[in-house]
Write a protein that binds this DNA or RNA. Sequence first.
DNA 1: TTCAAAGTGTAACATTTGTTACACCTGAAA
DNA 2: TTTCAGGTGTAACAAATGTTACACTTTGAA
Lengths: 220, 220
Amino acid sequence: MKKIDPEWSQFHNINENDNDFPTDLKYNIRPYKKNELIFRQGDLCDALNILMSGSVKTEMITESGNLMGIEIIKAPRPLAPAFLFSDNNRFPVDVTSLEEVEILRIPKDEVIRLMTSRPDFMQQFLTHNANRTQFLTNRLQLLSIKTIKGKIAHFLLEQMSEEGKIFSLNRNQTELADFFGVARPSLARSLSEMVQEGLISIKNKEYSVLNAKGLRELLV
Amino acid sequence: MKKIDPEWSQFHNINENDNDFPTDLKYNIRPYKKNELIFRQGDLCDALNILMSGSVKTEMITESGNLMGIEIIKAPRPLAPAFLFSDNNRFPVDVTSLEEVEILRIPKDEVIRLMTSRPDFMQQFLTHNANRTQFLTNRLQLLSIKTIKGKIAHFLLEQMSEEGKIFSLNRNQTELADFFGVARPSLARSLSEMVQEGLISIKNKEYSVLNAKGLRELLV
DNA sequence: TTCAAAGTGTAACATTTGTTACACCTGAAA
DNA sequence: TTTCAGGTGTAACAAATGTTACACTTTGAA
């Protein structure tokens, strides 16, 4: 699993140069050099941190020096906004700059004040968190399906507009296998079995669902 | 996977009988009988719906009549609060009452007004959503680990306070297997293998981690 | 204490998926 | 056109997990 990247881009318009930028807002923008440790696992998260430019990587590092679960985040995106208001408000990961980076930091109190005084900002914040939740829910639903055929079925039923209609995916087999978290040859095998079973047809990356009912039976 | 039930209980204090209950709030409370269809898949979600009493089930129903992914929700909890502010604000499931049920409904505009006028309510709302996001993130992390031993390692490392220290789980093997989404005998097999490998020890439901470093190597 | 129900350990076998390897196809660049 | 890289199909085998079944243990209530 690689891309957990919903649309955070609207946060970009929290920007100094913006006409709407609140003049009395307490904030600061801090630059970091390449390969600086920006946040450490366990750090208190008491401000909204928005990555304004550059990119960072997050990694969970263990005492023994092993690391796991690397994710790369590109500007503009807030960093761990869910942790700002959660009961357990500590960073779950290390955050390190991959290049020169600017981070806008708005203290929690100020975020609250900004939200109460600016309903549009509040809505934006809420919408983004809501979209994130939806994204996570979908992803969870996909990963909860245990068989590869089930995942394929879920995915195709979501993509298709109408039974029998042909549509093309913007991912190749390798990317799709990655998205599902399975091995590429296993995906290919399942796909060709589903073709043989008459559930779907594939012609040159053009997919079509022949038996939607049959697909739904795979979703258990 | 059964229990995706984080702590929503604080929402309970949005309650008519509460002294703090805002007198000018537009809302209504609607009762439903047993087995009524409360929301339909695809319905617009333009209000905060809080289940005040009773319990409901959510199910995704397909055209062919098959159903999948049943979840039971008990009061007090908001219903699909993530969908209120998301771009795709339609119910993803059918919601049906399992018994007599009361649902408090606050229109979206009113929620926004309530939040701007009552920072404590806003914080509560934000905190709950944040906790939900964290919960989903954890769950996703767990499900992303493909091997059973990896899941066990992840879980035990989270639970343990200190290497070598004994701790007990409040789940039995069956519940644990359910939580991991694996078969119970498979879990038992993995556990006993890990005991044999000297990673952990189990005595009468009392677990202890003998080799934390070894466990971390399973998390890939 | 006795007994039944729930929980646990484990074995044999089936099924699914991963791994590795290789042939083929296709499209774009030289 | 040639060539090469990326993408696809698929086969043989390995590994992990699920399924079913059953015996043993623990627990708690009668």
